[in-house]
Nucleic acid binder design. Structure first.
Lengths: 225, 225
DNA sequence: GACTTTATAGCACTCGATGCCAAAATGGAA
DNA sequence: TTCCATTTTGGCATCGAGTGCTATAAAGTC
């Protein structure tokens, strides 16, 4: 609680000595309490006033920490985009394009055991509550842009061209499928789901290979090239 | 203007003689005027009051024709879902799965020359305005379910399994990419865009073949298997 | 003309979100 | 200490989307 001085905004070096009134809370603290309310009473039934009251801040102040109620569920998504871009850009030039994408997506979606529970709550909400499903499209668009930039860098042309866009949005679809399945099923192997799905995508969703997937354990899926 | 009696709701046989007060407008008429305002002043800057005023109805009545401002842009999307399902289900069993998907998507997205202008406005808005991008996720989820049902029918298992979900969401991504590119570029060949993109998806986004796409006319794209 | 049915207009209300401004809290300088 | 610059906060007013409720208008039927 008595941390030296908390940064409310996104990254940014705390080089200068802090002046002015201290922030009365943090994004993380708000998210914790809000997710709690969402889980208990539902996302739609929880008003911003209730969240603000729970945190002990005013309604107006809430909107200074999160620009919308939906953003709370998304947490620090921007940071993950940076990681994804780094992963894609740092791949060797001779590595096949779709391999790079698969590895990058898998790498940016490794989570510690401690994070998995909260992640499952977040992903459950995101893929269930209509308002959040809707909002996800906006956030995922940014994700797509990162992938499209990478693909355009590989095959030439603009990231807005059909090729890069098709690859990026299909990759997104594949990742979403893996996440949604992981969030609602009993599987603990998120990495395996993502990796396997992207191997299928890379090879073009062969009907026979898909058939092999049904009722197979994740381990056997990874064997397919 | 003096049509016999217009149906405001979705399909539904007008078997009975119409009783009660006549609807003062139609969904299509509202959409026409609303899209006009969206194009001129922007989607967000256009209020429901303005649309209602333009149509000559009250704000409250607007919401009886469309359940939200966003829905106006989507028009009659439900009907297209039915067509898609029909296309998928009526395909011969021995036709390769991804061929069926491609043909079905192409078939459900053929439009007459008269419709193309309005469609371009719609798709431009849908893939540009954040509020509509968001809403699209909800509508597209229904689209995905149709495809996932078909894939599950082919390869076995549940539509909620990773395989069907990955195929469905990737197909959606591919279709979205084709539409977005067509909406913002000069190309008139929507069918070619969709068909070409799905051929790429079916084969797994081969890097070399993607490279051939850059700065190529649509006709040459279709030659690739 | 009375009755039923359907569509409409208008009002009140909730809730998310934004702009504006005054007040509180903090550190530094006079 | 006092004044000042800086930053956060809270309250207020406001807008706009969306919903529930009710009275009324328009149409057909008996």
């Amino acid at each position: 609680m008595g941390a030296d001085r908390v940064e409310a905004g996104v990254g940014g070096a705390a080089s200068e000595v802090a002046r002015g009134r201290r922030p009365s809370t943090t994004r993380a603290a708000i998210a914790r309490l809000a997710l709690d309310l969402f889980e208990r009473n539902g996302f739609d039934a929880t008003t911003v006033d209730e969240i603000a009251a729970a945190v002990g801040i005013s309604r107006r102040t809430f909107f200074r920490y999160y620009s919308s109620k939906r953003d709370v569920v998304w947490g620090e998504f921007d940071a993950e985009l940076v990681r994804l871009r780094d992963q894609l850009m740092s791949a060797p030039q001779d590595e096949p394009m779709m391999d790079v994408v698969r590895r990058a997506v898998v790498a940016t979606n490794r989570f510690g055991a401690g994070e998995l529970d909260e992640l499952r709550i977040r992903m459950g909400l995101i893929s269930t509550v209509p308002a959040l499903v809707a909002h996800s499209a906006v956030r995922y668009t940014e994700w797509c842009e990162v992938v499209a930039d990478f693909v355009a860098g590989r095959v030439g042309g603009s990231p807005d061209d059909l090729g890069p866009q098709a690859v990026a949005r299909s990759a997104l679809g594949t990742a979403m499928a893996a996440f949604a399945c992981w969030a609602q099923h009993e599987t603990d192997d998120l990495t395996g789901e993502v990796d396997g799905a992207f191997r299928l995508l890379a090879d073009g969703f062969d009907e026979d290979r898909l058939r092999l997937w049904v009722h197979r354990d994740p381990a056997s899926r990874m064997s397919g090239a």
